[in-house]
């Protein structure tokens, strides 16, 4: 019987097999559909969540690998939708269709936690998520805005 810790809650997954990707457990079993599917092979980043604060791709992270680690999804990133990254995304009007943006924000939040003053090069290297709508320049700008907020 697998129990995982998601957004501060212990969730019982019943007899789910340990090689099931976290993504599908979150979406289909726990009803946390904020985390999206885009490729299933760690190529697009739309499924990004935090595992003990680090960004991981939930499509290639199995329930077994999660173990006792703490999982944070967009639903748990902030109580009120006012995480500095969410605020910056709002301010810059980043989303077009919005589908990739949860993954983008989870990636950016993790990046900013380890580096609260990322250079353009840092952003280039860390933010490898795909946005088919092409919101990249606004994502870059929003990350810089969020960084300023976090430096305060």
């Amino acid at each position: 019987m697998a129990i995982i810790n998601v957004n501060g809650q212990k969730r019982d997954l019943g007899n789910v097999s340990s090689d099931t990707p976290l993504l599908w457990v979150l979406r289909d079993q726990l009803g946390l559909t904020g985390t999206k599917y885009g490729c299933g092979v760690s190529e697009c980043g739309v499924c990004t969540v935090h595992l003990d604060g680090d960004a991981v791709q939930s499509c290639v992270t199995t329930v077994g690998e999660v173990g006792d680690s703490v999982v944070t999804t967009i639903e748990g990133l902030s109580d009120d939708g006012l995480h500095p990254v969410q605020n910056a995304w709002r301010e810059h009007g980043v989303p077009q269709c919005g589908y990739c943006q949860v993954g983008q924000m989870m990636m950016a939040a993790a990046l900013l936690k380890s580096n609260n003053d990322p250079t353009d090069e840092d952003i280039d290297n860390e933010m490898w998520n795909i946005c088919r709508c092409g919101t990249y320049p606004r994502i870059r700008a929003a990350i810089k805005t969020a960084a300023k907020e976090l430096q305060k």
Binding site: L32, G34, K36, G81, Q86, Q101
Partner: peptide, 19 residues
Amino acid sequence: APITDLDAILTGKAVYGID
């Protein structure tokens, strides 16, 4: 003006076909 779905998108509550 902000798009009407902005907050839903930013908090993961927006519902797409896959959801």
